[in-house]
């Protein structure tokens, strides 16, 4: 048996071994603990029902704040991300500038939204302002990358034709890149907003506003029926946002309209 076929036979065994060690280390091979967990889930679930409708008004106001955090965050991310994405587009600028901007976007993207939330809570104090900026910075990192990839996908012949009329880079961006990429930009923006609604709903865990603050409070006070109300309200809002985005896509994106 040669070395490569021996390696191929041992690889699955190695994988199973690694999985067993990892499961033991994270405590999932402890039957007593697992049994206790199942019972706890049962208690937790039964304590959630029926949902507490007495907190509906509080939860509704909190979800409204969450939506505002997501909206402001998405707009901030897009407003900052769009110009940075143009500066990172290799069909417009040279490698030094595009490389530098891409590095900044990568660094911003590495930090999770929740961590940005903590940073802004430290900087600005508790509240939805910190959450909005946290979501905004996180969106900037992602939208910046998605946008410059969209710009670089614009048909080279269109760019060549518009550039050859003798226009500047700013004019090229305004009259060729942005209109050609508009549909894809809108699609990514809607996706980011949907994502940000979910991300904003846990911003309250670190004191950065929104429904997460109440969810954490209900968990700590063992008010699971109120927690269920906030989860259900969040679910309804997320479904409504998904539906609304789908309608907007059909309205503004001709490709989607043709396929529907």
């Amino acid at each position: 048996m040669n070395r490569s076929s021996l390696g191929a036979r041992l690889a699955p065994l190695l994988l199973v071994g690694l999985l067993a060690v990892s499961l033991a280390n994270v405590g999932l091979l402890d039957p007593q603990r697992l049994g206790r967990g199942v019972m706890n889930i049962g208690v937790f679930t039964s304590a959630m029902f029926p949902p507490n409708l007495g907190v509906l008004e509080t939860v509704a106001l909190a979800i409204l704040e969450t939506l505002q955090i997501a909206f402001v965050g998405t707009v901030v991310g897009a407003a900052l991300g769009l110009p940075l994405a143009l500066l990172a587009t290799q069909t417009l600028f040279g490698p030094w500038l595009t490389g530098g901007v891409r590095l900044v976007l990568a660094i911003v993207r590495t930090i999770p939204a929740l961590l940005w939330g903590i940073i802004f809570v430290v900087a600005l104090g508790l509240g939805p302002g910190a959450g909005s900026l946290g979501v905004g910075l996180y969106s900037l990192g992602y939208l910046g990358k998605l946008f410059y990839e969209i710009f670089e996908g614009v048909d080279a012949e269109v760019l060549e034709a518009v550039r050859s009329v003798g226009c500047s880079r700013v004019q090229l961006a305004r009259f060729a890149l942005l209109p050609e990429a508009a549909n894809n930009l809108l699609a990514q923006l809607l996706f980011m907003f949907e994502y940000n609604v979910r991300a904003s709903s846990i911003m309250g865990f670190v004191g950065a506003g929104g429904i997460g603050y109440y969810m954490l409070g209900y968990i700590q006070l063992l008010r699971y029926d109120a927690l269920l109300t906030s989860i259900l309200v969040t679910l309804v809002v997320v479904i409504a946002i998904d539906y609304g985005s789908a309608r907007l896509r059909r309205l503004y994106l001709p490709e989607t309209r043709r396929l529907s």
Binding site: D155, A161, V162, V165, G166, C167, S168, A176, A182
Partner: peptide, 27 residues
């Protein structure tokens, strides 16, 4: 002036806007 094989028009702009892009060099 250069008209490429596939024309290089901006699909999301109107007929008038595409025509006006020809004047960008003096704007």
């Amino acid at each position: 002036a250069y008209i490429p094989q596939n024309l290089g028009l901006v699909r999301n702009l109107t007929v008038l806007e595409n025509t006006l892009t020809g004047a960008l060099g003096r704007m």
